[in-house]
Each structure stands twice: as C-alpha cells, then as structure tokens.
Simulated scan of single mutants.
Amino acid sequence: MVDIMDTLTGITRLVKTTQLNHQDATSVVLQQEVSSPAHDVWTACTEAERIRQWFLPITGDLSVGGRYALEGNASGEILECNSGRSFRVSWQMGHGPDSELEFTITPTNTDHSLVELRHTAMVDPDMMGTYGPGAVGVGWDAALLGIYQYLRGIPTGPANQLPPAVMNPFMAASSEAWAEAAIANGADPAAAREAARRTTAFYTGTDDAVTS
C-alpha cells in the first residue's frame, strides 16, 4: 500500500498573488507528476462516474456553460474546457468568496502526466492571516491523494475514507508544507507557521472556526 505521507513530498506547492474579476486575489497552485497517461487522468477528473469514485458524487451539466454540484461541497459553472488538456470552473461554497478552479494535465511521456491544480480566490485578509493558504491547500492535497490512489486501483472516495489516525498526520504535514509555500511567497515565517497550526487544528477537528 502507498504510504500517504510519501505522496506529500511529490507535490510542488506555490502561493501567488494575482487578480480575479479585476480584484486582488490569491492562488494556491499544486503540481504533481502521476504515473498514468494523460487520457486516463483526464477522464478520471471529468467523467461523473469516475469523479465519485475518488472525490464526491457530482451532478449537473458537465459541459461549457453548464452547472455542476458536488454533494455536500462546492458548486459552480463550467467556464472553459480544452478537451483532454484543461478545464476551468467557478467554485462556490456557501457564502465564501468568489473563486475559480483550473485543472491542467500535461503529458510528460506516454504513461506519465503532470497534473496542475490552481485555486484562485478573493480571500479576506483576516482569514488569510488566521489560516494562511493551507485553508484551501490542505483540502487539495487530500484531493490529489485521492486521485493518486484511485489511478493505482486503491479504494478511495467517500465510502473508503482513511481513519483519523492516518489522515491527521497527513493534514498536519500538509499544513506545514503550505506554511513553507507561504514563506516562499513573502509571508512572515512565525505568522505562517502559527497559521499552519490553526489550519491543522481545523482539519483535525479541534477548532470550531470556519474556513472560507
């Protein structure tokens, strides 16, 4: 069985200041090479039946201009699609800030692919100061873990969730990795690591605060 802690080291994490709808925004970017051909990764991330096996049940019209909904999670509109290569969607959770998700797959050879996931949001400065980019990034690390396992035939998805004893160390290590990405983007090291501590507490169920 894959050691899930090892999968974290294979992810490149970036934090970037950018624009969304002509307003200041923050992007968290994850890049990971997977040992699967691009067409297999693409269908795993765009076909409803396959998405539910590693992520969540999804409903709606999965074509450009259509709307989707992930069960108990986000919903939005399909904004762009470059079939086999990339898609971009709006990502709306409750009353959270405007955000967009962009997913890109690049073949690196016949049976390996580079996956890039970019989530851009207009985040309240107080929220960013409290939790840092890990508020979003930790969840996407877990999603990439789901893809990584699924493509290797390891049961995943809602029916096969790993227990807290396994996932809590994963969440803590992910939070720390996002603190380092924030520091690389210019964040104060002490503040970034304290934000990571709060993010870990949230994801492991010891904090009642709500992420955006």
Rank of each mutant, 00 (worst) to 15 (best):
E80A: 12
I51M: 10
G76H: 03
L101R: 05
N82E: 15
D141H: 07
I105G: 01
E77W: 00
S86N: 06
W42E: 01
H112E: 03
T106L: 11
S83G: 07
N73E: 14
F55V: 09
M93A: 12
E49D: 15
E71N: 08
L101A: 12
V115N: 03
L70W: 13
G132P: 04
Q53I: 01
D61R: 00
A142P: 00
G129E: 04
P125F: 04
S75E: 12
T59A: 13
T120R: 02
D141Y: 07
A44N: 04
E116T: 10
I78W: 10
A44W: 02
S75T: 11
P97E: 08
C81L: 14
A48R: 07
R85C: 00
G66C: 11
V41R: 02
R118C: 11
G137W: 01
I51Y: 05
P125T: 09
E100N: 11
R67P: 03
V123K: 07
E100A: 13
A74W: 03
E77L: 14
S35G: 01
N73G: 14
Q53D: 14
S113C: 13
D126S: 15
G96P: 06
M127K: 09
L56F: 12
L101G: 09
P57A: 09
E102G: 10
G84H: 09
E49V: 08
Q92V: 14
D40C: 00
G96L: 08
M127L: 04
I51K: 03
D40W: 06
H112K: 15
S86L: 09
V136S: 13
L145E: 06
D124M: 12
T108G: 02
G76E: 02
E47N: 12
H95K: 15
I58F: 05
H39R: 15
E71H: 10
W54P: 06
G96Y: 05
A143Q: 09
D124I: 11
R118D: 02
R50G: 04
S36L: 13
V64K: 08
G139D: 04
V123W: 05
E71K: 11
V41G: 01
G137A: 06
T46Y: 07
V136W: 02
G146I: 02
P107N: 03
T130D: 12
H39E: 15
D141E: 12
I78A: 06
V89A: 12
G94K: 11
C81F: 09
T106D: 06
V34Y: 04
P37E: 08
P107H: 03
D40P: 00
G76M: 04
S83E: 15
S35T: 13
